[in-house]
Design a protein around this nucleic acid. Structure first.
Length: 300
DNA sequence: CATAGATCCTGTATGC
DNA sequence: TGCATACAGGATCTAT
């Protein structure tokens, strides 16, 4: 479940259901799902078996389970199991009696013989790896594959002013900048379109041509829409996007633009339009969100 | 350097 | 029914 609210729903579920539990077995059923763990499946399993998950953390769309060090100081966390759900990844906590999912990729069993943790991923764009922790430059630590990811707008340490400066320093279209996880993390195609609709900004407007107040307003809307989605358990159109217990969120009922092609704009009533963007789609109101001059959005 | 495009996968929906 | 095409919520690598 790809964007920030959905990943946060999963993080909370992991923190509730696997924190404090010790892994006794790791079964890698598809090598592609651990391709970021370059040392391979045996090393991956060897670095987790016998360890205790001491908590679940998240930055943007990445999440990780911190691994305690049983042999030395139990409080020490030198590594973590890092995950990214990609387009179709799920982390499910369920009984060992439950039949294997068709796209079950990695299974974790626990010493307590309670419910197991499964990584299920249809398209295998997601993946897991064990990675050492590095300093994040603000007194904290993150696994090294996450070090290049910016903080997300719901992070208390997110720097609004620095974000505004960075956005206004680039000439790319504002939607592309919103999706750049090194600028701001957690925003994907749904919440980019929703935030732009709320802020009445067309995604192809060059970021450098937005005012400081305009960028701040857009950031506020991104924050608000993701917080609202989180409060409803995230957005899901189908069974692919579920929490660790297999349940879907309800925010799809609140979407104003994304996926609403042809339906009336909730603000002005004109039909929501769709245009091609980065091998997928952008949804927007052609009336509320004026296209930049000289660059009409191609209908498809 | 910054930016745009192609690519990795599998499944579902739609149209001929 | 069969087959082809378009599309799906992402990140990363490559080319320009």
């Amino acid at each position: 479940m790809p964007e920030l609210p959905e990943v946060e729903v999963v993080r909370r579920g992991l923190d509730t259901w696997v924190r404090g539990r010790t892994v006794c077995d790791v079964e890698v059923r598809h090598p592609r799902s651990i391709r970021r763990h370059e040392a391979g499946a045996a090393d991956f399993a060897g670095r987790i078996v016998g360890r205790t998950f001491t908590g679940a953390s998240r930055r943007g769309k990445y999440l990780w389970l911190r691994l305690g060090e049983p042999d030395e100081c139990p409080e020490q966390e030198l590594a973590a199991l890092v995950g990214h759900l990609g387009m179709s990844g799920q982390l499910l906590v369920e009984s060992s009696d439950a039949p294997d999912e068709p796209h079950l990729r990695v299974r974790f069993r626990f010493e307590d013989e309670g419910p197991e943790l499964r990584f299920v991923d249809q398209r295998t764009f997601g993946g897991l790896a064990v990675a050492d922790m590095v300093d994040d430059g603000a007194g904290g630590q993150v696994p090294w594959p996450v070090a290049h990811i910016a903080r997300d707008p719901l992070d208390p340490l997110f720097d609004d002013a620095a974000f505004v400066r960075r956005v206004r320093a680039t000439d790319a279209g504002i939607k592309r900048v919103l999706l750049d996880q090194t600028v701001v993390s957690g925003i994907g195609n749904i919440y980019a379109d929703e935030a732009l609709w709320r802020a009445r900004i067309h995604g192809e407007r060059p970021a450098s041509r937005l005012s400081t107040a305009g960028v701040r307003d857009l950031l506020d809307h991104a924050r608000a829409v993701m917080a609202a989605a989180l409060a409803e358990g995230g957005t899901s159109f189908d069974a692919l996007y579920v929490n660790v217990n297999g349940q879907s969120g309800y925010f799809d009922r609140r979407l104003a633009a994304y996926g609403q092609e042809g339906l009336p704009c909730p603000r002005c009533g004109r039909p929501i339009r769709r245009s091609a963007f980065m091998n997928r789609s952008s949804y927007f109101c052609g009336t509320c969100q004026r296209a930049p001059r000289g660059r009409p959005a191609p209908e498809r």
